[in-house]
Simulated assay, not measured.
Amino acid sequence: MPPVQPFENAVQTHGPTVLRVCRAVLGAGPDADDAWSETFLAALRAWPDLPPGTNVQAWLVRVARNKSIDIVRATARQAIPADALPDAARSHDPQATDVWQAVARLPQRQREAVAYHYFGGLPHTETAEVTGSSPAAVRRAAADGIAALRRTLSTDDPTPSARTPAKASR
């Protein structure tokens, strides 16, 4: 038996409260609006099974909090592109500087695949989620990127560590 009030009334009555919760977690902007929408989409799906006597406002606030945290987590996993390396990442070692410059010259898909998988330690499946690609495409881009780095950075030193970044564990 669904709650006494129709779903439309719950949206009108509790919508402003849900938006305040989303904005408190995410700040004003499109992310808060998205969390508000996701909250009410999830609520609409669960509405028919909501037990009678449920405190609808408290339930919606909890759903809004969870949806907002989902957006925070998703945003935290996305890299922010930059034109130059931050000062902390710069090195006085000429070989390290060459690596960063070579990575920066890779095509975007290869650069992202190498950065997320090899430098960030993400598995190909998570790298695919972050980049909006398939795991197979990420594997290929990462392999092509590493091959390009090997060609660019090849030296007389036969040790692989001198030519390529260390691969992170999966």
Rank of each mutant, 00 (worst) to 15 (best):
N55Q: 07
G120A: 01
R90I: 07
P160W: 11
R111E: 06
A43Y: 05
V21T: 15
G121Y: 07
T75Y: 00
T155K: 10
G29R: 10
L85S: 09
A115Y: 09
A64K: 02
R139F: 03
W100P: 01
D83S: 10
P16F: 03
H14M: 03
E129R: 13
A24K: 13
Q12M: 07
Q95W: 10
A168K: 12
L44W: 13
I69P: 00
P30I: 13
S91N: 05
T131W: 02
A136H: 03
P165D: 01
A58N: 05
L41G: 06
R90Q: 14
T13H: 05
F40I: 02
R90V: 11
T39P: 03
P51K: 08
D98H: 10
P52H: 05
V61Q: 10
A79F: 11
A128K: 03
D87Y: 01
L50C: 11
L85R: 06
S154D: 14
A76N: 08
A82R: 14
P86G: 04
E112F: 10
Q101E: 12
T152D: 14
Q108W: 06
L60T: 05
V99H: 13
Q78T: 12
A166G: 09
Q12D: 07
L26A: 09
V21S: 05
A168S: 15
S68W: 00
R20G: 11
A96R: 12
R140V: 12
A89W: 11
R62E: 10
A147C: 02
Q57P: 01
A96C: 08
I71E: 04
L60C: 05
F119G: 01
A10G: 02
L153G: 10
R163M: 11
L149N: 10
L85A: 14
V4G: 04
R77A: 13
A96M: 10
